[in-house]
């Protein structure tokens, strides 16, 4: 699944883990045929394996926002500086 490799590890884990929870919930509810139970069991084992793979093989990704991020995002106000002259706008 190319989609899951692109997703952040935390998201992949979260979705596999909640599917695993769902499998347990269905098995706990019961009333399943042997066929259905066997399929859930197999799916649950696959999901557990996937979860463990994500947990053991993920690496922390580090992104650094550029130091001039504020300028890039137009967060720095335009330099409408008044004249450098001291006290140019001061009233006595």
């Amino acid at each position: 699944m190319t989609e899951s490799t692109k997703k952040p590890a935390a998201k992949s884990f979260e979705s596999s883990f909640s599917e695993l929870e769902e499998v347990v919930r269905k098995l706990e509810t019961g009333g399943l045929s042997l066929d259905e139970a066997t399929k859930l069991f197999e799916n649950g084992m696959k999901l557990a394996t996937k979860c463990n793979e994500i947990l053991s093989s993920s690496e922390l990704k580090i992104t650094r926002l550029q130091a001039n991020f504020a300028e890039q995002m137009n967060l720095v106000p335009d330099s409408d500086n008044v004249a450098e002259d001291e006290f140019d706008d001061e009233d006595a």
Partner: peptide, 11 residues
Amino acid sequence: RYPLAEIILIP
């Protein structure tokens, strides 16, 4: 502890 995340460093 948690290598599942992406860290965005805002310096």
